[in-house]
Amino acid sequence: MMNRKIFLFAGIAVALMIAAMAPFIASSNPDGLESAFLGIFGAKEIQGPTPDQEHSEAAEQEVTVITGNDFSFASPFPDYTIEGLAKYGEAASIIIGTLLVLAIALGLGRMVSRGE
């Protein structure tokens, strides 16, 4: 059985490796929900290839009108990008996110279990 510390460090190493690789291997196709949305709003055939840009933007405006939810928020690293850093910026931002999730989970876990 693997030693506890080694097991945890191996886990962190795997997570960081996945994070660093992600932007280089991930597909930029729309995800399932987005694809369904684009299909339903006529920017893409349900079983067709990638959508076209112009129709996609029109679809996004159309759905905002339907729901009336026009809330928007400028996140610090929109879509995992860091301005001017291309793919390496994406890798950096996903690594930062991974470490942040790790740190918050450790902190929150300690806080909650100590509260007993």
């Binding site: 945890l8 886990g11 962190i12 795997v14 997570a15 996945i18 994070a19 996110g97 991974t98 470490l99 999730v101 790790l102 740190a103 989970a105 450790l106 876990g109």
Partner: peptide
């Protein structure tokens, strides 16, 4: 914590 980081 490691699971959360890996899932992210």
């Amino acid at each position: 914590a490691v699971l959360a980081a890996g899932i992210f």
